[in-house]
Design a protein around this nucleic acid. Structure first.
Lengths: 121, 121
DNA sequence: CGACAATAGGCAGATATCTGCCTATTGTCA
DNA sequence: TGACAATAGGCAGATATCTGCCTATTGTCG
């Protein structure tokens, strides 16, 4: 769907949130497949069976300048005997972007994120 | 199943036959996935949905000294934007081994490869 | 010959990433 | 506000290779 520049979609926010959480644990780099597993554990809600959607969202975040992508070293994949990973790293712009997205969501809540309205009894 | 040394199993013979056919076309190297497609076209009979059986057979043929395996150059896979292939090449011992297997099969035909018995009317 | 050991074959799925196609959602403009 | 354009999400499947588990088949030995 069309969207105004700078705005983040739910999946993108989720990716960045997981990324920030990993960063807090000292893990600066992650890859798509691991992210898929984390997201599955996290919410359970998102199927992501065929991870096409996720990889496209990752590419978008790179294009948006919020993440940086690089290919894993050949040798590592080789030693561990598995396909090569594409490693993603959050850029500085990511954290404020998430904060803005969260603020925007609080201001304009979508159906599904309805919270008990304590202000208007 | 157990087998006496030097004997080839049907799948192994098929692999080597396809390999020899490719060789005659000037294609000395092939990889597992392409082989799976060729075998599927060829007989149709073998499912090979999850190619585990095929890859194991390839490893056996390498251990048996009938084929040689090598990893494709990183750069090629990278340029073509796909996983790296393991390339197989028939060794000199392959052709006589197939010939022997075929001769053995003619001598001791299994159920399923029954040919019209023209010798004993 | 019949029981046993060993291994082959098949099924399922892990590991990674990516594309095509169709539908759903959203912003914009008339 | 309602129609349209654009793009996001989901499903399916391609590209490659490999492991685990269970069953089927085979050679050997008592």
């Amino acid at each position: 769907m069309r969207r105004k520049p700078g705005q983040l979609l739910p999946l993108e926010v989720e990716i960045l949130e997981v990324g920030l959480a990993l960063q807090r644990q000292g893990l600066t780099h992650f890859h798509g497949y691991s992210l898929a597993k984390l997201l599955r554990e996290r919410g359970g809600r998102r199927s992501l069976t065929a991870h096409g959607t996720l990889y496209r969202a990752l590419h978008r975040l790179v294009s948006a300048g919020l993440m940086e992508a690089s290919w894993e070293d050949h040798g590592i994949a080789e030693r561990e005997n598995r396909p090569r990973r594409r490693l993603y790293r959050l850029l500085g712009a990511a954290e404020p972007a998430v904060a803005r997205a969260r603020a925007a969501e609080r201001a304009r809540p979508k159906l599904g994120s309805l919270q008990p309205d304590l202000e208007s009894p």
